[in-house]
């Protein structure tokens, strides 16, 4: 019974959101506002249920883990942003999160996103027994990376055989990348539509399995 009601509610709001494609209307706006409100409400409930309750309230009450009062107090300082006179206190938890976040993230992020990628771009064009298409791929990879980097080098005018030609090739490489991304984006948006149609035709109308 409750499942059926849920499916009908889902179908109604799916159609309500898609009604925007015809033109904006009050039903669409209702659905839009509900999405925002329910998402926030759900997030708050889950955060209380799986974070605050088991990780703060229960250890404090049941386990007398008084040390947790320190992060709890630090967290509460966020709320001072709503009180103009002491709003500056909210900078402390922000500074704490930023500082620890940066400290933890910086070395590993540098290693993962910079050094590893540099390493992966330093490859031999040819090795014995390497198939020709891999050789071509390696050449495109290395020169494509260099050309794209030249395009983003703004301290020299993009003129002459090196910077001029390099930046032109670079923009072509970048455009090819944008084209691939656009193609994937179309595929992604259609996939989301497919998901909704499967819901409407399958779960709601039972026209498909």
């Amino acid at each position: 019974m409750y499942e059926t009601i849920g499916i009908w509610v889902g179908a109604f709001f799916t159609l309500a959101i898609y009604s925007f494609l015809y033109k904006e209307n009050p039903v669409y706006r209702l659905a839009e506002h509900l999405v925002v409100g329910i998402s926030l409400g759900y997030t708050m409930a889950i955060t209380y249920d799986v974070v605050l309750k088991p990780r703060l309230i229960e250890p404090l009450i049941g386990g007398h883990a008084w040390i947790l009062l320190i992060p709890a107090a630090l967290g509460l300082l966020y709320i001072t942003r709503f009180i103009p006179g002491i709003a500056w206190l909210s900078r402390y938890p922000i500074a704490f999160v930023m500082g620890t976040g940066m400290g933890v993230a910086f070395p590993l992020t540098m290693k993962s996103n910079v050094l590893r990628q540099l390493e992966a771009a330093m490859i031999p064009f040819y090795q014995s027994g390497m198939p020709w298409h891999v050789v071509v791929g390696n050449i495109v990879l290395v020169f494509g990376t260099l050309a794209a980097l030249i395009y983003f080098f703004f301290s020299k005018p993009h003129k002459g055989p090196f910077f001029g030609t390099g930046s032109k090739i670079g923009i072509w490489i970048i455009m090819l990348g944008f084209g691939a991304t656009f193609g994937f984006t179309v595929m992604g948006r259609i996939s989301l539509l497919i998901g909704r149609i499967q819901y409407l035709l399958g779960d709601w109308l039972h026209l498909i399995e």
Binding site: L108, A120, G188
Partner: peptide
């Protein structure tokens, strides 16, 4: 990748949306 793969060598695989798929191909190549 950053905290699992780089820290302890944990094998990682991605299942990503089509929109962001092109962003993560470099991680395969590397």
């Amino acid at each position: 990748v950053i905290y699992g793969r780089e820290k302890i060598g944990l094998p990682v695989a991605f299942g990503v949306t089509a929109v962001s798929a092109t962003d993560y191909y470099p991680y395969i190549q590397s």
